[in-house]
Simulated scan of single mutants.
Amino acid sequence: MKRLPLRKEHAARLAEYGLQNIPLNACCCLRFSAGEEVLHEGQPISWLSIVVDGNAKVCRTAPNGKSLILCYNISRGLIGEVELMARQFNATCSVKAVTDFECIAVSYQNCLAELKTNLVFLNKLGTELAEKLTTSSDNFTSTALCTGEQRLCAYILQNSHRGLFRDTLTDVSCSVGMSYR
């Protein structure tokens, strides 16, 4: 992970979330290389992340040690919003960079009052949480009602980039709820 100063496009992204008035010294740009862990489930979390560029996968680990990929953040979205709204101090999921990944880290400690009272930000956050809930509901419906073959085909289509599928097969099997074999 590399910490970098904010650039002009970062200020524009903060403005999209109504956060143009937060002190810029309370934020930084974080860059992760492909394969690097952005957050680790159960570890302390001290910032909200606004995704700027790149792909990351969000995973949750079951008590039996198996992981499930919940979603992919692709050049947009928030990371840490569930923890912010639930007043959690530890990450509820793991986030791993799939490609080079860049985000704006907004310190909870320095910006919590603004994050909890800024109506533009809260509306944007609510919209994103609703979208994630809808996606989660769709995924559950698919898992419960579609065959393994149908889930696998849909997963490959959804996660192909320019007609090319490059995901790790063990991740694919976890995501579609099937054996690797």
Results as ranks from 00 to 15, higher is better:
2 K>A: 01
3 R>S: 11
4 L>N: 12
4 L>A: 07
6 L>N: 02
7 R>K: 12
9 E>C: 05
10 H>W: 05
11 A>L: 15
13 R>W: 05
14 L>F: 08
15 A>T: 15
16 E>Q: 13
18 G>A: 10
18 G>H: 14
19 L>M: 01
20 Q>D: 06
21 N>K: 14
25 N>I: 12
26 A>P: 02
26 A>W: 11
27 C>M: 00
27 C>Q: 00
29 C>F: 08
29 C>K: 10
30 L>M: 11
31 R>D: 04
32 F>S: 02
32 F>V: 07
32 F>W: 15
32 F>P: 02
32 F>Q: 03
33 S>G: 05
34 A>S: 15
34 A>N: 05
35 G>W: 07
36 E>I: 10
37 E>F: 10
40 H>Q: 14
41 E>C: 08
41 E>D: 01
42 G>D: 02
43 Q>T: 08
45 I>N: 01
45 I>P: 00
46 S>C: 04
49 S>R: 08
49 S>V: 03
50 I>C: 00
51 V>L: 00
52 V>M: 08
53 D>L: 03
56 A>R: 02
56 A>H: 03
57 K>M: 05
59 C>W: 12
59 C>R: 09
60 R>Y: 12
61 T>Y: 12
62 A>D: 11
62 A>I: 03
63 P>Q: 09
65 G>Y: 11
65 G>M: 06
67 S>T: 15
67 S>H: 04
67 S>R: 13
68 L>S: 08
69 I>D: 05
70 L>G: 04
70 L>Y: 07
72 Y>N: 04
74 I>S: 11
77 G>S: 02
78 L>W: 01
80 G>R: 05
81 E>I: 04
84 L>S: 01
85 M>I: 13
85 M>R: 10
85 M>W: 06
86 A>V: 03
86 A>D: 02
86 A>H: 04
88 Q>H: 03
88 Q>R: 12
89 F>I: 07
93 C>S: 13
96 K>N: 06
96 K>S: 08
97 A>R: 06
97 A>G: 03
98 V>C: 02
100 D>S: 09
101 F>T: 01
101 F>H: 01
101 F>S: 00
103 C>V: 15
105 A>W: 01
109 Q>V: 12
109 Q>R: 13
109 Q>G: 06
109 Q>A: 14
111 C>N: 15
111 C>V: 09
113 A>P: 04
114 E>W: 03
115 L>W: 12
120 V>W: 06
123 N>P: 00
123 N>S: 06
124 K>L: 03
124 K>Q: 14
124 K>G: 03
126 G>C: 11
126 G>L: 10
126 G>R: 04
127 T>W: 09
127 T>N: 10
128 E>L: 14
129 L>I: 15
130 A>K: 04
133 L>K: 05
134 T>L: 13
136 S>L: 14
136 S>I: 07
138 D>I: 11
140 F>Q: 09
142 S>A: 14
143 T>N: 09
143 T>Q: 11
144 A>T: 13
144 A>D: 02
145 L>D: 01
145 L>A: 10
146 C>R: 13
148 G>Y: 05
148 G>Q: 11
149 E>P: 02
150 Q>D: 11
153 C>M: 11
154 A>V: 08
155 Y>H: 15
155 Y>I: 09
155 Y>W: 15
162 R>W: 09
163 G>Y: 07
165 F>R: 02
167 D>A: 14
168 T>P: 00
168 T>W: 12
168 T>N: 14
169 L>S: 05
169 L>I: 14
171 D>Y: 09
176 V>E: 04
179 S>Q: 11
181 R>L: 12
181 R>V: 11
